[in-house]
Design a protein around this nucleic acid. Structure first.
Lengths: 267, 267
DNA sequence: TGAGAAATACTCAACTTGAGAAGAACTTAA
DNA sequence: TTAAGTTCTTCTCAAGTTGAGTATTTCTCA
């Protein structure tokens, strides 16, 4: 044990290569039936004026924080919401992946741990920190290709490798909706089956058969549970008032709710 | 642009909290019909004498390397294989997750990026670097609980949070076998359907219905393709000689090959 | 008040799965 | 040499799931 103490004492972390660690957050929500991602506009170089995922340096030693805590902190700072608020509490947060290609940040070697968040509708963000603007942005406006590049002519150019990170986050979100009940994380505490279908349609970008979707959601054990109440008719275009449901206790959908027509993507 | 250059010049990475970045590898293979993981025994504190996943510091600035390259390098160093060798070439490697809880390493703040590797049978490893032993270890010998802890009485205690990392890697491997053809990454270039079934049984820890498995593998497009040849009868207990197959060109299995009897895990 | 829209419930054919059985090809032990 | 046991491979059948379409009812809007 004295051995171990000697060893620790002779250990200077700064002998190692200086590597910085950041967290970036792909925060997704549904607004007006379309999938949106939270972006901030960079006020300073590098990539000044370009848009980026909210994020920042992890507090490493002083006030050392765990990675998910850093992600929530950065998200709270950018949205102006308190960590402990209702919407941020109900939010789903999971690690997406870590991006560390040398040269991805021109200043220094930066390893970025990306998190993926699903949130019910959140208020407009307020710019803060290094950002001079912040906004929910429809993902369709970013011209993202499947391999993580932006099509020429897109107005909102993403900084660093954030187009790649966002593309990975979107694909993860699409896949998670297949086999988990996380679509409910985009909804308020009580929601209707058509609202849930709208989440699937926004994330997957395709229309679903209403009758089959309804049958499927009710037949998967633990996906949703009825509240016995009915939604009021605000903002609807016709038809009977749909019933209200809450998220059930399932953590996995069994059988899964598969995306239609993916035969082309398989090879 | 002058603006940007000034900014970079005034930027000292060492102003930031010193955080070290490592890679750790969960390398899985099948030996004697059982799932094994590559472990090394630590020669020095902390956790001297305990077993750990192979890994080490990422080369950050001098000879800066990308994270997957660091994972392959560490794996090659620990196994004594060259990073261009046949088995290491055919190996599947994917990022598993990043572990950065403060205090997980008593020396300093360490963020560890874990990788998951699937390999066909590899030679016995040779200890090197900080390790005084290295061995393929049956995962059943580690007494892993589902929540990433080791049951009391397990002889090979894992250092750091490596029990958690390994548990996550095993769950990822089990899930990947359901919807990707990656079971073939555990097999030699040519294999039989019963050999492929043995991979599934070793990773999932349950016996599968031979007839249904056979039908399923052949019916999923692009999973395997026949070679027209037949295996020789070495080391078999009876029965006809099975046909040989190669991995097909599918990247996803559609429909997926689901694990039986997971109804309990859903809630 | 009538047209249109949407929620929900149904039907039916096609497909997939799980369980079992059968036949053929091979090994091993008597 | 033979009998018994093992395993690969192919079938069969019942039960469950899916995709597409239809029907009924309740609502909004003009």
């Amino acid at each position: 044990m004295a051995d171990e103490r000697d060893f620790l004492a002779g250990y200077d972390p700064r002998d190692y290569d200086p590597v910085a660690v950041t967290v970036d957050v792909v925060a997704l929500t549904i607004r007006d039936g379309a999938l949106h991602v939270l972006l901030v506009r960079r006020a300073h170089p590098p990539f000044a004026g370009m848009w980026a995922l909210p994020g920042g340096f992890v507090r490493g030693v002083r006030d050392a924080e765990d990675l998910p805590d850093a992600a929530v902190r950065e998200l709270a700072e950018e949205t102006g919401l308190e960590a402990g608020d209702g919407p941020l509490e109900r939010m789903h947060l999971e690690q997406l992946g870590t991006y560390g290609r040398p040269g991805r940040d021109p200043r220094m070697r930066v390893i970025s741990v990306a998190y993926l968040a699903f949130a019910p509708e959140l208020p407009e963000p307020k710019a803060g920190g290094d950002a001079d603007d912040a906004a929910w942005t429809p993902v369709t406006a970013l011209g993202l290709g499947a391999s993580g590049e932006q099509r020429p002519g897109t107005t909102r150019k993403l900084a660093f490798d954030h187009a790649r990170v966002l593309a990975d986050g979107l694909e993860r979100a699409r896949a998670k909706l297949e086999y988990t009940p996380l679509a409910t994380a985009f909804c308020p505490p009580e929601f209707t089956i058509p609202e849930l279908r709208a989440v699937y349609e926004a994330v997957w970008g395709e229309e679903l058969h209403a009758g089959n979707f309804h049958r499927k959601v009710l037949s998967v054990p633990g996906f949703v549970e009825g509240t016995g109440t009915t939604s009021d008719r605000i903002g609807r275009r016709g038809g009977p008032r749909p019933k209200l449901y809450r998220a059930g206790d399932a953590r996995l959908l069994h059988p899964a709710l598969l995306r239609p027509g993916r035969e082309e993507e398989i090879r």
